[in-house]
Design a binder for these strands. Sequence first.
DNA 1: TTGACAAGTGAACAAGTGTTCACTATACTT
DNA 2: AAGTATAGTGAACACTTGTTCACTTGTCAA
Lengths: 188, 188
Amino acid sequence: MTNDKLLKLKQFYAKFKRLPTYTEMLDLFGFASRNAVYKVIHKWMEEGLLEKIGNRIAPTASFFVIPFLGAIQAGSPTMHESYSDDFVSLDQYLVPHPGHTYLLRVSGDSMIEEGIRPGDLVIVDRLRQPKQGDIVAAFIDNEWTLKYFNQTNGTVFLTAANPHYSPIHPQQSLTIGGVVIKVIKEYY
Amino acid sequence: MTNDKLLKLKQFYAKFKRLPTYTEMLDLFGFASRNAVYKVIHKWMEEGLLEKIGNRIAPTASFFVIPFLGAIQAGSPTMHESYSDDFVSLDQYLVPHPGHTYLLRVSGDSMIEEGIRPGDLVIVDRLRQPKQGDIVAAFIDNEWTLKYFNQTNGTVFLTAANPHYSPIHPQQSLTIGGVVIKVIKEYY
DNA sequence: TTGACAAGTGAACAAGTGTTCACTATACTT
DNA sequence: AAGTATAGTGAACACTTGTTCACTTGTCAA
């Protein structure tokens, strides 16, 4: 099965963080001739899973795509790989503005009422203009913290979801890193 | 500066999804001799950023370490420096077992006590063996739902975080799609 | 039974691989 | 001023790389 080989290729990449050489694929796929590998690879290149950059093979975005199961209602999730639109690249999905998006590990409990706990990972978009009610990353007291963005009568102030914290009215300058667009909670 | 070269190496990896060859690093680092590259690479291997698997160089876990904005506490937050390091692949970070991982959009409110709300995105690992207390994706009543996995005296049953739902003791067969390893909450 | 076709074999090729060696230039310590 | 690390050069090495070519299977329809 070809999908069998593709799965092994992905597993190899996950383990060694690179594509295997043709010789390594001999063992991986169970071939005896490197030319058999050549043909498989070039078939995948035609399918858009791999591409040639310079004279070297590189995985494309669709190589990293993972299946999106939300739509499936019946049957068990059989993992046969068909590359349809039901596959998502997390990089592309989660980062709308590459180069203007960054990660922040939540340290305080100021947003615990929003379900954002210490240890969670936050994706912040610098390009997004903060609007009333947005969660923003602000640099306060030499630390990055998450607050609600508020704007009344042209005055900007920040509030926490946790009521134990009082609103922050910036004295002179307010450094806002960006708007929180996604929160990633890790269970492992 | 050495960090300059390391940054370029990481940028190369982010772009091409592999480490460059020594010859490519000549241009990348501005060296004239491949031996200069050899020495830099082996210095990084001693520092634990790279490692040798077989007779090939591979990035280690610390190579992929995410530059969090939270790390820069002292000094003024020069945004430029902080996010210029942001070359992390979320695909790699979030998906430990490519080909055995999938996404699921949360529809019910059975896990709202855990902070998992309808509309959230869940990353499910099929390879992970469910343990007591894990959140699993289970196929119940022709639907995928999230429940806590419980195991007492060899008997498996599922519970919801929301106390309005009663525990589910499977009559005959229990289809578990996998263990929830990450939850993505979307604010935009 | 024949012919076509996809899939794999095995040998050969030039070019590129990581590594080693001996050597040079520069900066820094004492 | 002399000595010593540190960083880079450049040529050579054995081996591996991706690719090409001609050839051999097994499968299946007509």
